[in-house]
Nucleic acid binder design. Structure first.
Lengths: 160, 160
DNA sequence: CCTTGACCCTCCCATGGTGGGAAGCTCCAT
DNA sequence: ATGGAGCTTCCCACCATGGGAGGGTCAAGG
């Protein structure tokens, strides 16, 4: 099985296959004399595992952990569960953050008549005078962006 | 006002001030003879506007639009509202996506006893046999990652 | 006046996953 | 033998942000 076939069988692009190998998520694939990568049915299983994990938004780092546990017959399910639970917690945090943004913005949009006139509560809020505090404060606390979010959650986030 | 003071007054890092100028979100700042950037109180207002918009998760592209509308006395509030509403729609989509991931993973975690034994429904699902469909299908549809999400939503997403 | 330290400048690099594409080789079918 | 599909490596881009190197500037205190 060459890379194109493994890709088709697993739903992981050839590009990503090479990338996962490069970063050590996958072991280095065997090669033909000509240098073509060769994959087995077992490799395809691993790839499907990875694909499923990515679809659930897990980061590559966590998938590395899970693949390790998966292949360890001595693993304890508690370790697996912990990884999953950590990810759920991050998803929850991100959902809360996005929901707060959404709600604030929806409120502002609702307050905007949306006609030809220039007057607009959205811009008024952004101007940040803070003169209408009832429309502020929702996301104002410094939950702000930072490595945590970018490194932790992503996958589904950068995804598209 | 130099860049450090403008940064402190607006809550936007000096690094980002330079970046926003580079990508054309801000006009090129005036300079002292020594080459130091100089900012006015008006600039700080714009920066606060941008900061607020970023906190609500708007992409730089959309913020460019909003700043343009903000500074246009002839604008119609409908245009502003449309930009905001588009962003709300993207936030909603992302929230749905993350929630689906979260729910699936939480179900799997709930089903995992989490003790010393190796048997684990999470790994079982990831193995993807599809043998227990009641735990599948939630995120299985190909909503998958792609340019749209990365370009559209971000801010709060990459943020941290 | 000179030193010190805080500040500023530009330029490069990294993040996390993913896609795009160029330049060149291999394989298979015609 | 030729064409095209598929493989290889290598570099670039995304988005927004932070980190840091290497060097210039400014103001306060000695």
């Amino acid at each position: 099985m060459n890379i194109g076939q493994a890709s088709a069988a697993s739903g992981v692009s050839a590009k990503m296959l090479r990338y996962y190998e490069e970063i050590g998520l996958l072991p280095k694939a065997a090669r033909t004399e000509a240098g073509y990568r060769v994959y087995s049915a077992k490799d395809v299983n691993t790839l499907r595992f990875i694909r499923r994990a990515r679809d659930l938004g897990l980061s590559i780092e966590r998938i590395k952990l899970l693949v390790g546990l998966w292949q360890d017959r001595e693993r304890s399910s508690a370790d697996v569960k912990r990884v999953a639970t950590e990810h759920v917690a991050e998803l929850d945090a991100k959902i809360l953050e996005l929901t707060a943004m959404r709600d604030t913005l929806q409120e502002l949009a609702d307050a905007c008549h949306g006609d030809h006139r220039p007057d607009c509560p959205i811009l008024h809020d952004f101007e940040g005078g803070g003169r209408s505090p009832e429309h502020r404060g929702t996301v104002t606390k410094d939950v702000r962006r930072g490595k945590g979010a970018a490194a932790g959650l992503p996958a589904g986030c950068h995804a598209g």
